[in-house]
Design a binder for these strands. Structure first.
Length: 577
DNA sequence: GCCGTTTTCGGCCCGACTGTTTTCAGTCG
């Protein structure tokens, strides 16, 4: 049976294709709304489908039900198949170009016969778009730029996607008989925010047997370039359409496992910065390996090219000998901050989110739904904020974990938040985030955000640069000035742990720490499942060398309440150490 | 196509931005 995600994709694809064909826009939106109803319906939607009870779901009427049931029963949809025939073959990839919607794609298809990304690029370079109605030179240039971006983005995957692929590979290979040991190495082990290659280290008892077993699962080729003698033929490249290369280092002796892990975790710049003779590296674990090269142990996440650069700065500034390792782990987390519920645009109810939070081991939680000006996300009017407050009161009596009421308040164009200061008093915790007007000039955007940071009720600056990895650039903003403002106004900085964001960028964490800022690592969860995103934020925090005392989620609930209380009283509260 | 209901059909989120065109269509969040 197709899963929930496939059904959502089906309905959204149908909507896009109908729009291309010029169907009534309200009919198109009915399919879009249907997809969003399914998305918000929680995991039991698959049960509802099995029990043929889709009519209980708001937004799924007779028409959509028959499409979904047909798809579930036959694995196909006639409507979908029919529509597919009338759109260009590369319709979906064309839709990925920012600025192109179905209307413009239709013009391109009808007038110039453009049916995929390659043809579009060619037509732009031939300067053929300017002649079309609604298109001009600026559009043509913008499209070319977007195509360039799409090509670059295509070489990377997000950290969570990398995790999915790795898990699958580990699952398949750890069951093979000759495999003695296998581990993830490389960029993923370093917790890099976008991944261009996956690496594994394997120790096997019998390489020939292993390769013949491997052939049954993956197709692969041996990598022999830049290798010599004994190493030759020990690296193989799996080519099974994983979007990024997957490289295995295969060892026939288990005792070199850690050395190979060390050498493949990298990065290349970090390793060469150590200035070591790799033949002298020995050790049963990585601590011993660092001992053998006479260099203090560095955690995998911090082994980046920036390491020496930052170390030099730290050495120079603070007279410290070496950069300290991060000690942060998910085990330190007590507070779940910044998550959403179906009060605004998330899938799960407040109760469901809290149940998961409690089960995960959190001691307190601050729900932060969208605020009133976020109409696209069903943001909370003042009235609904108070309704939620009532529910929280009741739930606090039921739950062991303490529940606070927060809000993710939109930063308006002029830098004010979208509730009055008088009303903001209602919240225990205020996250201020930019969700609109991303295209301001740097100076204006910087002023806007600093004004929000200076609001006496702001506790946290949410996803500070607004970037969406492999999709949307950060807005233009002077982060150094913003960080200064956060430091002097006791506003913590978010490390948004959603794998699409991972924002604040870890490279800026060092700078912010130097200013004495505190941080908050948050899943920005829009479903109970997404609470687990915290693990990606922890990797990013570790890359930034964070100590757990610098992360407000790791405070005890008393310390957290005091921290918030002190801010309200206007007391200065810097880094706790 | 879905919903709500004055049960037979009208309204569907909406405002801002961009690049066009010269008052607006298309896209986006």
């Amino acid at each position: 049976m197709p899963d929930k995600k496939e059904i959502i994709n089906l309905l959204e694809d149908i909507a896009d294709m109908m729009e291309f064909k010029g169907e009534n826009i309200f009919k198109v939106n009915a399919y879009r709304n249907g997809a969003s109803s399914i998305r918000k319906a929680g995991e039991d939607i698959e049960q509802l489908i099995k029990a043929k009870k889709l009519d209980e779901v708001k937004g799924i009427g007779k028409g959509l039900q028959s499409v979904i049931y047909e798809y579930v029963n036959t694995g196909k949809s006639l409507l979908y198949e029919e529509l597919k025939k009338s759109v260009p073959e590369g319709f979906k990839e064309l839709l990925k170009v920012r600025g192109l919607g179905s209307k413009k794609i239709k013009i391109l298809f009808d007038e110039l016969g453009i049916s995929n990304l390659g043809e579009l690029e060619y037509a732009c370079k031939e300067n053929r778009l300017g002649l079309l109605k609604g298109f001009g030179e600026a559009t043509q240039q913008k499209i070319l730029k977007e195509i360039e971006k799409i090509k670059t983005y295509g070489k990377f995957i997000l950290l969570n996607k990398a995790g999915e692929i790795s898990d699958e590979i580990l699952k398949r290979l750890s069951g093979l008989k000759p495999v003695l040991r296998i581990a993830v190495s490389g960029q993923e082990r370093r917790g890099l925010e976008i991944i261009s290659e996956l690496r594994f280290v394997l120790a096997v008892s019998d390489k020939r047997l292993f390769l013949s077993e491997l052939k049954k699962i993956f197709s692969f080729s041996e990598l022999t370039s830049n290798l010599s003698g004994k190493e030759k033929g020990n690296k193989i490249l799996i080519s099974n359409g994983f979007q990024v290369p997957v490289i295995f280092s295969i060892l026939e002796e288990e005792n070199n496992f850690c050395k190979e892990m060390f050498l493949t975790t990298g990065s290349d710049e970090f390793l060469s910065g150590l200035k070591i003779d790799s033949s002298k590296i020995t050790g049963k674990n990585e601590k011993e390996i660092f001992d053998s090269i006479n260099f203090p142990y560095v955690i995998p996440e911090m082994r980046e090219k920036e390491y020496f650069e930052i170390q030099n700065r730290v050495l120079h500034d603070k007279n410290k000998e070496l950069l300290e390792n991060s000690d942060l782990s998910v085990d330190h987390f007590k507070g779940l901050l910044h998550f959403h519920t179906n009060y605004s645009d998330a899938q799960n109810t407040l109760t469901e989110m809290l149940e998961t939070a409690q089960k995960t081991g959190f001691e307190f939680a601050a729900v932060c739904d969208h605020s009133k000006s976020a109409a696209y996300a069903n943001g909370l009017s003042e009235e609904r904020v108070l309704l939620q407050k009532e529910e929280i009161k009741k739930l606090n009596a039921k739950f062991k974990l303490q529940i606070l009421q927060g809000i993710e308040s939109d930063i308006l164009q002029d830098g004010s938040l979208d509730y009055s200061n008088d009303f903001l008093k209602n919240f225990d915790f205020v996250v201020a985030s930019v969700h609109s007007r991303f295209n301001m000039e740097e100076e204006e955007m910087t002023k806007r955000i600093i004004k929000a940071v200076e609001n006496p009720y702001t506790n946290l600056l949410g996803h500070p640069t607004g970037r969406l990895l492999l999709s949307r650039d950060a807005y233009k903003v002077n982060m150094e000035k913003v960080i200064d403002a956060c430091a002097s106004n006791n506003v913590a900085i978010e490390i948004n742990a959603n794998p699409h964001r991972l924002d604040l960028d870890w490279r800026l964490i060092y700078f912010a720490r130097g200013k004495g800022c505190l941080f908050s690592i948050n899943p920005d969860a829009h479903s109970a499942e997404e609470i687990s995103y915290i693990k990606y934020g922890v990797l990013i925090g570790r890359k930034g060398g964070l100590k757990f005392e610098e992360v407000i989620n790791c405070f005890s609930v008393e310390d957290f309440r005091n921290y918030l209380g002190d801010k309200r009283k206007g007391k200065s509260l810097g880094r706790r150490s």
